[in-house]
Amino acid sequence: MKYLSALAATLFALAIWQGIVTLTGLPKFILPGPALVAETWWQNRWVIAEHTWITAVEVVIGMAFGTVLGVITALQLANSRAARVLVQPMLVFTQALPVFALAPLLTLWLGYGLWSKVAMAVLIIYFPITSSFFDGLMRTPSGYLDLARTMQANRRTVLWHIRVPAALPSLASGMRLSAVYAPIGAVIGEWVGSSQGLGYLMLLANGRAKTDLMFAAMLTLGVFSILLHMIVRRATARMAGEMR
């Protein structure tokens, strides 16, 4: 039923798209129809696959680094008042900066290749991961902490045996969010400076008025992000307590 409704929604969207193309009679370099985009996609499938692979690698490495960094930061923040006072405002400030503005800088510092895109993905997911996990760590049900106190627990064991496990569902929602954000970060990085990846392909196709190829690359990115989100969702189901 779930798949059936997804299929219906997709067909409906395609019908509207085709309807607009037919009704307005826009030239194909302005708005190509779904059939043309599908054809272009098929013709360029190997090129698209190659660029998708590049973007996927950037996203996955970025998510791994971003998650580890976010988890470490959240643990430090939760563990020390000094860290909260010193680091938290900075964290919020960095989030207030538009990542678009940082992308050229990162390209300047880290070069044209993989790492400037990884850094973009890391930057964009670092805050959601940190803040969701940190919130979880600070919201441990007080009854557990009372119990631990009467048991003469020390701070470290309370953190590992109670606060961290109790915060895992929050971390899971941060990770799910990051699966949606990380590809955006990587693609922004590619726009600013690169010679490969889906962002690069989109920009290239757009510049040459190959709007159909641009659409094909964009839809591929969309499908990739949805798949990534589904995978992360599944992988974190246990953490989120959905399989308890």
Partner: peptide
């Protein structure tokens, strides 16, 4: 020297019955 029991059973939902029973020792290492 006190042991404490509340209205809420305060069992850790991610731990098994056996782990919950021996929680105190784990928290004191």
């Amino acid at each position: 020297r006190v042991a404490y029991m509340a209205q809420d059973d305060l069992l850790l939902p991610w731990a098994t019955v056996a782990q919950n029973v021996s929680l105190g020792a784990r928290l004191r290492r």
